[in-house]
Structures are given as C-alpha cells and as structure tokens.
Design a protein around this nucleic acid. Structure first.
Lengths: 193, 193
DNA sequence: TCATATCTTGAATAAGCATTCAAAAACTAA
DNA sequence: TTAGTTTTTGAATGCTTATTCAAGATATGA
C-alpha cells in the first residue's frame, strides 16, 4: 500500500563506493547509513543485513560494468580499436588513484573469496561473464584478421583478465603513470600476438 | 634482566598466517592470541598494537619470501630454468587453494593501500625489492642469451609482477589447475619474448 | 474522510572489539 | 639466597559494532 521512498540503484551505487573505499569489513553500518541516507531499519528491511547489501551491490556493480564495457566497444567498429580503448580506460582508472575507481569485484575477491562461499560463487560467475564478453571480442578481432598466433580467443580472454587484475594490484604501489601506460601497451601486444 | 620467552620469528609467522587467512580487519586480537600463544599484554609490549604486529609480520613475510626466492634460483645454473621453476612454484601455490599460501604482500596491498600510508610505503618498497630481484634474473637470462626481443630487464620484471599478482587474484575463482598451468606457461613465454 | 498496510525512524540491545593495567611470576646478577 | 627488573597474565575498560523493534509517519484504496 506504500512503496519505498528510496531508489534502489542509487542506494546500491552509494554502498558500492563505500565498500570500494574501505573494504567490506571496515565499512560500518554507520558508514552505510551516511552514504545511502537510509536508516538501519530500512537497510535491514530491503537487504536483510550488511552482507545482503554487499551481495546486492556486487550484482549492481557487475551490471554497471557490463553496460560500460558494452558502451565502450559499441563506439568502435574495429574490435581491436575497442580493445585498445578499453585498455586505456583501465589504465586511466589505475593512474587516477581514485579509490572509487577500484574494481569492486576484484576487491571483494581478495577480501572474501576464502571466507564467504556464496560471495565467491557470485564473483566466480561474474568473472565468467567478463571472460565470455572478452572472448567474443577476441573472436571478432580474429574475424577481422587482426590477430597473430594460434591461441584461442578463450585463452586470450583469460590472459587479459589476469593482466588487468595484476595491473590494478600493481597500481596500489603508485608507479609512474608512464610505467602503467607502457604496461598496458605491452599487455595488449602480448594478448593479440 | 629477563629476556622474552617467545620466539619473535615464530610469533610473526603465526600472525602472518592469521592475517593471510582472514585479512587484517577480520583478524581479532583473540585470534592473534590463539595463533601466537601470546597474551594481549605481551603482544602490546612487543609490537605496540595490532597494527604494529601486522607491520612486523609484513617485514618478516618479505624476508621469508626473499630467502625462498633466492633458494629456488640457487638450485639452477640456468637463470631461465630458475624462472620456470619459480613460475611453477607460484602456480602450484595458486592451485593448492591453501589460504596460507596466499601472498600477504598482495593481500595487504589490496586491503590497506588506500587506508594506511605507512603500510603502503612498506609494501611499495617490498614490491620494489621484488622487482629488482626479478630484474637481476632477467639480466642473467639475457647474458645467457635466452631472451628474444628488445625489452629491458626492468620492463620484463614489472610485467612478470603484474602477471603474478593477476594470477593470484584469478585463482580465487577456482579455475581448473590445467588452466592455471597454461596461464603460467603463457606468462613465461610472453615475458621472455 | 477514514482505515489499513507499509515504510521510516532512531533509540535500545547485546555482543565483540582493541587496549590497558596492576598484580603475579620468573629470570638475572649480586 | 635475595633484590631488582622485566615479562607474563588475564580480568577490566570503554568503545564500536551489527541488529532489532516498537512507535510514528505516510501513502494508498475504499
């Protein structure tokens, strides 16, 4: 007889940034109350508990990143050019040192994979979706004849994911932006070879 | 007039495993008391506080891994063979799914880099040490004439670190062991090319 | 306009946390 | 043996935490 006042996506995006900046364990309900504008009761009503809010935020983050990736690639007719733009985007995020541009999937994977089976299952599936998306990209690049070597698109997708995870971790030590850009270029070269 | 009863290295190694399994935030003083066998007072006397224990554990971990790496390479006259053995070792750790074989440096980097400047500084320096060690390895491989291409040893060292970070993160999604081994092989190939 | 169902509010709860401290124990040197 | 110093011990402290819940507010349907 009465619908909720808050916008669920908006709340989840606010929660996402809090979890990205502080990590799951260090983000308190008080923090979440502050960033979402929701009182504890409402959070518990809508998401069960703090963990439920995290799991919902993980799903929202994955949807958002999926759309972002699709939008980025739709701007390029050449799949290879799309991949280069994607790599540049990732490197820019790394170089920005903005805690809100960390990858929540990766952050959660590192914090929770060994502790929370359900979270791990969600993250594994999200990783698989990402891998499949990149696999399609490599298939398109292959069709357009811009791939050297004999590696399968799936292998290449996996290698690219590994490299992007690594790049994001490496960025925590604040290397020079030029170093990050060079690493990005090299990754692209290796993965298309 | 009285020396401490506990062995500092032993205590730090116990703390290391606790931090690796649960992360810093979720490891309670009670956990640390349990794994180290030390009462709170002793921990605070020896390491100031929980954070001090973490920083000391990080240093110990770095020393241990440095020796491990040196030991591994000293078993091979060919630097290239040493590198292959090192890669196999990392892949085996990833495949084992043993939380105690996670890399504490990487775990701490992901959890604390944006939150604790001092920890970040320590971790950055450790990363630099690791980079330098791998750089020397690539210099030796180059001297032995087993390197294709024109990339500098430093670039190669950085790429390898990125790949290993990525491999460890990727492993949290439990890919098949054969996939992990193939990724390791590909990384070696790319980095020596 | 009123009844009803639902959401919002925020104080209360209880458990867990890092940290402190004073008393007890134990090693060392004389 | 004894005095002196340091470590060990673990209960106490005060704070923070996630979660609950009952009262109040508000939109909807009759």
């Amino acid at each position: 007889m009465r619908s909720a006042e808050f916008n669920k996506e908006q709340v989840l995006r606010a929660a996402m940034t809090a979890f990205m900046e502080k990590g799951y364990a260090k983000t308190s309900m008080q923090d979440l109350k502050a960033v979402t504008g929701l009182h504890p009761g409402s959070i518990y009503c809508a998401f069960q508990n703090k963990r439920g809010l995290l799991l919902a935020a993980l799903e929202q983050y994955n949807r958002d990143r999926g759309e972002e990736l699709q939008g980025l690639f739709s701007q390029h007719t050449s799949a290879r050019a799309g991949l280069a733009a994607y790599m540049t985007h990732v490197v820019d995020e790394c170089v920005s040192c903005d805690p809100q541009k960390l990858c929540l999937t990766q952050k959660a994977l590192n914090e929770l994979a060994e502790q929370d089976e359900e979270a791990q299952a969600i993250l594994s599936e999200q990783c698989a979706m990402w891998r499949n998306a990149l696999c399609s990209v490599f298939e398109r690049i292959a069709e357009q004849g811009e791939l050297t070597g004999t590696r399968s698109p799936l292998d290449r997708a996996r290698s690219l994911i590994v490299s992007i995870y690594g790049l994001r971790t490496f960025a925590h030590t604040h290397p020079e932006p030029q170093v990050m850009r060079d690493l990005g270029t090299q990754i692209l070269k290796d993965v298309c070879q």
